[in-house]
Amino acid sequence: MLWLFLILPVMTVTSRSFNISDKSTSKAISDRLIELVTQGAFRGVTYYRLAALADTIGPRLCGNESLTQAVNWVRDVMVSEGLENVHVERVEIPHWIRGEERARLIQPRYAKLSMLGLGNSIGTGSNGIQAPVLVVRSFDELTARCAEAQNKVVVFNPQCDWEAQPIGCYDIVVAYRHNGASHAAKCGALASLSRSAASHSIDSPHTGRLSYDPAYSKIPAASLSVEHADMLERFQQRNQLIEIFLYMEAQTLPNVIGYNLVAEIKGSSLPNETVLVSGHLDSWDVGQGAMDDGGGAMISWTVLSLLHSLNIRAKRTIRCVLWSCEEFGGKKTFFIIDFQSLII
């Protein structure tokens, strides 16, 4: 009965059809949509859809059956509420699995390290890797100390002022997650660990995707919590011996078939021109993917539900696409849109 709960707003607010043709009409429609979302039948609908997705299906890792379940669930509800041209489009997607993983500090004391393997990483093998550690803050520092990295685990601990650069710092830190393994491998390292790309932490590592440079050997790669990356650097600053054990079962399986989900409301006078609203349904396997990007996907879906509930047809076709596998490299294109010019 979950699907029925999710389409009740559509069933309760339908009214006469609108073809938006002038500014006064578009203003009235905008006011009505805002009223529905903030005070009316659609208040909380996006949240409840998101909660149902996150609670009932949970993590939706690219290539995993749970992602297909999510696509089918949303598609069935879209069809039930009467959206147009609801269909899936096949796409070949990668299939990486995490498996068991752990990291432990061996020297100068024994302790569990908070880590998450990075998407696309290889595993360590059944015996794991136990080796000394070299901590660096940048690729330039690694280059200068390349000889020291031989047969060690390289830990990238980049520093950035997140308060001054809340967006810029993310890109700076992610570069080490994305490219660090190959830089470390170039210097003969056995594995690569990178500081989590987060402004704040509660000892919570942040996963993501890495890329290997084909010019160098692949080595296992994972992220460390902010606290543990800093701790390892403090050990090094005190000239203490640092040794860790890393175990990862990660592996990449053959590609599988996934599905992008599409639904529309055809335009009234320019149906061959399209306004796209979209988000990605896939998520990482270690969380529910509520914000990245379940929220964006549910918002995009509810845009169509709102318009359909009022029988609104804009001049152009409004198309919702819920993508598969953004977390493993799916690309997005963004447009700056003058919405007023599109709907009148």
Rank of each mutant, 00 (worst) to 15 (best):
M1R: 10
M1C: 06
L2I: 07
W3F: 08
L4D: 07
L4K: 08
L6K: 11
S24N: 15
S26T: 00
K27L: 13
A28T: 12
D31A: 14
E35F: 10
V37H: 01
G40R: 07
A41V: 00
V45F: 01
T46G: 13
Y48G: 04
Y48C: 10
T56M: 14
G58H: 09
P59F: 04
R60G: 05
G63I: 05
A70R: 04
N72P: 01
R75W: 10
V86W: 02
E89Y: 05
R90G: 12
R98A: 15
G99C: 10
E101K: 03
R102Q: 13
Q107Y: 11
K112R: 10
L113W: 09
L116F: 05
G117V: 00
L118D: 03
G119L: 08
G119I: 07
N120R: 02
G128Y: 05
G128N: 08
A131T: 04
P132G: 08
V133Y: 08
S138Q: 03
F139N: 00
F139T: 00
T143M: 06
Q150F: 12
N151L: 05
V153H: 04
Q159Y: 06
Q165S: 05
P166F: 07
C169N: 09
Y170E: 10
D171M: 15
D171V: 09
A175C: 02
Y176F: 14
H178M: 15
N179E: 06
G180F: 04
K186P: 00
K186G: 02
C187N: 11
G188P: 09
G188F: 13
G188M: 14
G188V: 10
S192D: 01
L193T: 12
L193W: 12
T207K: 01
L210M: 15
D213V: 01
S217D: 15
K218W: 04
I219R: 01
I219F: 01
P220A: 02
S223T: 15
S225E: 02
S225V: 05
E227G: 13
E227K: 12
D230P: 00
L232Y: 03
Q236L: 12
Q237M: 14
R238G: 00
Q240V: 06
E249S: 08
A250I: 05
Q251H: 11
N255W: 11
G258M: 13
V262Y: 14
S269T: 15
L270H: 15
N272C: 04
V275M: 11
V277N: 07
G279I: 02
G289T: 12
A290M: 12
A290S: 14
W301D: 04
V303M: 13
S305E: 14
L306A: 11
H308R: 06
N311L: 06
K315Q: 11
I318L: 14
R319N: 11
C325Q: 03
I336P: 00
I337D: 05
I337C: 09
I344V: 09
